[in-house]
Design a protein around this nucleic acid. Sequence first.
DNA 1: CCCTGATTCGC
DNA 2: GCGAATCAGG
Length: 179
Amino acid sequence: MNWTDERVERLKKLWSEGLSASQIAAQLGGVSRNAVIGKVHRLNLPGRAKAGGSASANRPASKRPAPAAPRAPSFAGRDTARPAARTVGANALKEDQDVNVAEPVKYTASGSVVVPISRRLSLTDLTERTCKWPVGDPLTDDFHFCGCDAQDASPYCKYHAKLAYQPVHERRRPAARAS
DNA sequence: CCCTGATTCGC
DNA sequence: GCGAATCAGG
């Protein structure tokens, strides 16, 4: 997978929207979060001043990592047969019969879900099981919804559920205590 | 453990 | 230029 202008633009946009590198990698597909971070730096995009971990800007050079470590072979350009991530086809999604599945969900070798790839659904394509997190500027025709598998009892997917405050329609009052 | 971004350096 | 390996941290 190479960095086409279109992909770079998408990267810039998502980064400026504050998405994490791994989320952006998921959206773009075919790249790791490291690749995204590396690209961000190469583009001289503003880093996350404070977010996440960082603060290692002053890391002493004497403690450099990676003397010369074995590397996984480069899989640039190919979505298939990546070692760390196998793709699971429509089986993983078969419950979502109302959803047009654009891309498969990815799993790590250990089987845990790593990447909810946005299905870029429009409003009318949302179902009870799709993530309703809005993406992009609503005033542009690029606006869409995440559309990933929603978490149980959540209108959002794994990632976006973390970002979302509890939606009003999901809030529950303390509920008269049964006792 | 999970995750985040930052950095280095072989390719 | 690319990105895995690694680091540093929440």
